[in-house]
Computed example of a mutant assay.
Amino acid sequence: MESFDTPPKLELITFDTPFAGKFGLIICFDILFHDPTVALVKMVGSFIHTDLIFSTAWMNALPLLDSIQFHRAFSLGANVTVLSSNLRNEKHRMTGSGIYTPFSATFYHAVNRGPEEGRLLVTKSDHCHRGRCADSPSPGSSFTGTMAHDLYNFVLLNETQGNLRVCDSTFCCHLQYKWTAHNKSKELYALGAFAGMHNGSIRYAVQVCAVVRCAGLEASSCGQHVLEAESKMDFLLEATFQTDYVYPSVLMNCMEVKQPDKLEKTTGGRVAMKYSNLTGGLITACLYGRMYQLDHLPQNNSNTLKLIVFLLLFVFFLFLICKYCQHKIVHTRAGPRYTPLQRSFGD
């Protein structure tokens, strides 16, 4: 069964305003897919819309896809302004809205058992068009762990500073780091890499590099949900992606998103994110790459499994039919059977 329910014809919805030109409209999980989101902001190799209105019922999925985390990351990675309006529903983990530009973020992230009423966000920002926006600013022992339903390869950050690498097949993540505040007896961190189809209820292709705080002091806890952190570091996180669509994020304690000091992208697919002087504990630093071009490729493993199940059922039913036919033939050849008593009465 396919993971996508796509319309027969792509519609790109925009509207004009007298104060800021044209806005594009996207809804909820549209932001995770090429169509309509990337198609809306990119056309014939140049970005034509730089402001997106985004209404959503976003369920937070830490440690990589919290609402304010990924919406901020998309704004930064795509160099667009995103006006994100999320539902407030604590039961379903819907807690964050914001106004994100490539240079700033104004957001609200509700806390557990906080008030359910809405919050009005207002900010002042230059209207930035793509053509004149300035550019945004040693291997360890690896282990596997599940994060956001996917199987990541991890290495631990065990030293006061270091240069680490972790790979998932040919996709490799590099991290240079130096702790500025860290208590090893209280918090454990890991660098993770994943490349492939996201294994959630909706399947799509990603390449991800992430520095995450583990939920406990055991390696098996890396990749689990974390809401708080105290450790601070200076870091440079980089990788070479097979996609142009890479969304960077830095998520800190108390669900606060931060602007990287420097973000570099090269034509060869290399993306590097640098941050220094963190003012709060680091929960996640992430480069989230979306390989839209692979979303709709057939899944060989799934198709193979379906074929095997079909063949097994076919063989089973064929066996039942053969047994039934064999029984009918034997019964017909033998004819009716009589007991000796029945024969004497018949005579």
Rank of each mutant, 00 (worst) to 15 (best):
N158A: 14
Q207Y: 02
F345V: 13
Y275S: 07
R132D: 13
S67A: 15
V111H: 05
Q293Y: 09
V226A: 09
H149E: 13
K328F: 01
W58C: 05
A73M: 04
T95H: 01
R343G: 04
I283D: 09
L76E: 09
C173F: 04
H71P: 06
E90T: 00
S249Q: 08
T81D: 02
C209F: 01
R130Q: 08
H34F: 12
L121Q: 06
S138Y: 08
V166M: 13
D150E: 07
T243G: 05
G162L: 11
K91R: 01
E11T: 13
Q342E: 15
D347N: 13
E228N: 10
A195R: 11
A205P: 02
S201M: 04
P63H: 02
R213S: 07
L151K: 10
S67C: 11
W58R: 03
K9Y: 09
A57L: 10
A181D: 13
E230M: 07
S302V: 07
D150K: 00
S85G: 10
F143M: 11
L120S: 05
F345I: 14
F47L: 08
L25R: 14
W179N: 06
G216D: 15
H182T: 04
V122M: 11
V80F: 00
L32E: 15
N89G: 01
P18E: 12
K262S: 08
Q326M: 07
G96V: 02
H49K: 12
M59H: 06
L40K: 08
